[in-house]
Simulated scan of single mutants.
Amino acid sequence: MDAPRRTDRTGGQPLDAARVDDLLAEYRRTGDRRARDAVVEGHMALARFTVRRFARNNVGLEEDLHQVALMAVVFAAERYRPGKGASFPTFARRTIDGELKRYLRDRSWIVRPPRTRQEHYLRLCRAREEMPHRLGRSPTINEIADELELSVDQVVEAMETQGARRPTSMEPTREPDDTVSVRPELMSWDRGYGAFESHDDLLRAIDSLDRRQRQALHLRFIDELSQPEIAERLGVSQSYVSRIIRGALAQLRDTMDAQSVPTDRPAGAARTPSPVEPAGAQRGEQTLRPTGTSGPDVSDRRRSA
């Protein structure tokens, strides 16, 4: 792509090298900023052309770089001396390149990575632009590593560095159907609320049991006694203890299921198991022993609290 043609905004004629030298000489002699501004305006297209090469279709970054490039043209007009080396367009292009690189290195990082990784990232960006033209396709990581004379790990680190310059927004985004989408990283379901509600439901359900049922559950799940030990403690048979426990668990489950579902829990969401409800309660199993300390009946502790 050829560099854009420079025009003199003041007269509408092409701004050639001689005209640039005359305007800058006039500015040095008289201090008239209109002469300098004419040179700057005549090279605004050059600034835009250079910015597009650095911005790489990043609209937000392109606006910032355009301001930096325009200031670089002003700096070039202030420092340029006719007849002492390169022409003004060449001098201005190098000044713009230097200012843009300095801005990208020092000012454009939200989280500033090490200098070496920044340089690898800038080289990676250039390789991503140039290599597809030569290969006719997108290059692989191994090909990029060979091109830049870096290891594959260094290329991967350079790719990851891009997130430090423009991190993804955490703000909710509005979808085409006018719904709000929240990033998955910000979504979570606090099970503590469900556990608290299930525990409160359990305490209410325990009140519906008779004293023998509560005593049998306490001996089984708090004192962790076996069914033969419970039978001996209550003076009944082991099979009767088993029926008491199964009946009590079934009654607890039916009572808790009959209670209303909290409004902040999604419909159809599984209820969080209570601290003293066994995982196999629906199958009549007593395999999960809850945490707790031994003491009086659960409902009695609730009343005393």
Rank of each mutant, 00 (worst) to 15 (best):
L203K: 07
R93L: 11
H120D: 12
S260Y: 00
S226P: 00
H43W: 04
A77H: 04
R204K: 15
R5K: 14
D2Q: 12
E157C: 01
Q67S: 13
I244K: 07
R33M: 08
R48L: 11
S138V: 08
R246L: 05
V51W: 03
L46K: 09
P139G: 11
T293M: 02
D177W: 03
P172H: 11
V156F: 07
F221K: 02
M1K: 07
D207T: 08
E63K: 14
T140D: 05
G42C: 03
S169R: 08
Q286K: 08
R283L: 10
P4H: 14
R117H: 05
D177Y: 11
T10K: 10
V155Y: 08
A195Y: 01
D257E: 15
T7F: 14
E277H: 03
L135H: 08
A92N: 01
F49E: 05
V276G: 05
G284W: 15
T293I: 03
A127H: 02
A45S: 15
M131A: 13
H120K: 04
G292C: 04
E99Q: 14
Q154H: 07
D300G: 02
A127F: 02
G31I: 10
A231I: 02
S87G: 00
L46N: 11
A270K: 12
G42M: 05
R246G: 09
T255F: 08
T293C: 01
T140Y: 00
Q259W: 05
A195K: 03
R93G: 06
A267F: 04
S188Q: 12
T140S: 13
Q13L: 15
E175A: 13
P4T: 14
A267M: 09
A17F: 00
D177V: 09
I96R: 03
I244A: 04
V241Y: 04
Q13M: 15
V68R: 05
T263N: 11
R166I: 09
Q118N: 04
Q227F: 06
V74R: 10
R174V: 15
D223C: 00
A145H: 13
L288E: 14
P139Q: 12
R56I: 04
A158C: 06
L104H: 03
P296H: 06
E185G: 03
D201L: 10
A145L: 07
A69D: 07
R36M: 15
A164S: 12
I96Y: 02
T90F: 00
H218K: 06
R28V: 10
N58K: 12
R174G: 00
E277T: 15
P275A: 03
R6Q: 00
A231P: 01
V236F: 03
L209E: 08
D64R: 13
G280L: 05
L61S: 06
I110W: 14
L150Q: 11
P184H: 14
E130G: 00
E224M: 07
A158W: 05
P167G: 06
A269V: 11
S151T: 15
E78D: 10
R302E: 11
T255Q: 14
W109K: 04
P114R: 14
D190R: 07
L148N: 10
D264A: 13
D200W: 02
Q227V: 11
A145I: 09
Q238E: 14
P113S: 08
T30R: 09
I222C: 02
R204Y: 02
D207K: 13
M159K: 12
R34D: 12
V155I: 15
R303G: 02
V241K: 06
